[in-house]
Structures are given as structure tokens and as C-alpha cells.
Computed example of a mutant assay.
Amino acid sequence: MSFYPILVFVHVTSAITLSAGNLLSLFGLFALRRAQRVEQVRAILGLLALSEPISAIAVVLTPVAGIAMTVMSWGWRNGWINVALGSFVLLLSMGVITGTRRGAIARLVKEMPDGPLPQSVEQRIHDPLLGTAVYMIVALLLGIVFLMTTKPVLEGALIAIVVSVVLGAAASLPLWRGRTGEEAGSPKRSSSDV
């Protein structure tokens, strides 16, 4: 048995794990935006923190196995591989934004007494950049999976990722709507907050 099938297994398994972690992040965002109390926010962030070590391993194994398969078999001449790798770097930058913003919320509520959410926490939870980063991660993952499964030429790969980015940005537009009027006060809750 060659080493290549093992790399495929590691790559696919870690990509599934990464996708599951990011879906949990998306559902966590929905739950945070519905939270009414400090203790609810702490519980949601605690659940999300449990998935972070597994997601971190997947973040490393997915590209390492992919690069190893590229070197062993595919080669760098395939445009979709380069686009997927570049998209993965963009995905990681969105992950840094998400992790930083959620970490700030966690530090804020850590020592707070149980009770209704203060305005300062509400504003951080409803930060449109946090929501945009989460939506972009999900959209980019879908785009990268599309590249992995269809293996298009360079132009097709670029179009697929551009479509993914546009979809992620479009999904996040409601998060930014009316933001200037809300910055002075508590953000409005609406159906677009979910």
C-alpha cells in the first residue's frame, strides 16, 4: 500500500473536521446573537472553546496533507490547487478575526456577574465584522470543497472562489445594515441577526 491513500484519508478527514468546527462556529454566532444573559454567553463560548483544539489540528493537517499530495502526485501546475491554497490562507485570516473577537467577548464576560447582558457585550456580539468573518469562512470552505471535488482549470477555480466570497459577503450584508445609527446605542435585534 502506498502512502498516498493515507494522505487522502488524512486530508479528507481533517477537511470534514474543519468544516464541522466552522459550522459549530456559525451556530455559535446565531446562539450568541440570541443570548439575553451573561451566563448564556459564557456557556456558548465555553462550548465553542471545546472544539478549538480539534479544529486547530484540522487547520494544520488539511493543508499539510494537501501539499504532500500535490508534491507526490498532482504537481503545482494545476491551477485549482494554487487557488485552493490561497483561499485557505484567506480562510485562516478570517479565523484570526473570529478568534480575536470571540476571545475579547469571553474576557469581557468572564468576571461579570450573572444577569442581563450589558450594552458593551451586546455591541461586541453584534459586531458585523465578527459575523462577516464567520460567514466568509463557511463560504470559503464551500468554495474550497468545490475545487477539491471538481478540480477545475485556473479560470474556473478563480471564478468559484470569487462566487464563494461574493456569497459570503452577501450573506453578511444584513449585519452591516443600519450600523451607523446603532453605534451610539444598543443594536436592534431582528430576524437578520440570526
Score class of each variant (00 low, 15 high):
M1Y: 02
F3H: 11
Y4G: 06
L7T: 02
L7H: 03
V10G: 10
V10R: 08
H11R: 14
T13D: 03
I16R: 08
I16P: 03
T17Q: 14
S19G: 11
S19I: 04
N22M: 15
N22R: 01
L29S: 10
V38E: 07
V38C: 04
I44M: 08
L47A: 14
A49R: 11
S51F: 01
E52I: 12
E52Y: 05
P53E: 01
I54C: 06
S55W: 01
V60K: 00
A65M: 02
G66F: 03
A68Q: 09
T70A: 14
T70S: 10
S73I: 01
W74Y: 01
G75S: 02
N78A: 11
N78G: 03
G79C: 01
G79P: 02
G79N: 04
W80K: 07
S87T: 10
M94K: 00
G95R: 12
T98P: 04
R101P: 01
R102H: 04
A104S: 15
I105E: 12
A106V: 02
L108V: 07
K110D: 13
E111A: 11
M112K: 05
M112Q: 06
P113R: 14
P116D: 14
L117D: 06
P118R: 07
S120G: 03
I125W: 06
P128E: 11
G131Q: 06
T132L: 12
T132W: 01
V134Q: 02
V134L: 06
L142P: 11
V145N: 15
F146C: 12
L147F: 07
L147T: 08
T149M: 15
T150W: 03
I159V: 13
I159M: 12
S164F: 02
S164C: 06
V166T: 10
L167F: 05
L167A: 14
A169W: 13
A170E: 09
S172G: 00
L173R: 15
R177F: 15
G181K: 08
G181A: 12
A184C: 03
G185P: 00
S186L: 13
R189I: 13
R189M: 11
S191I: 08
S191C: 05
S192I: 06
D193T: 12
V194G: 08
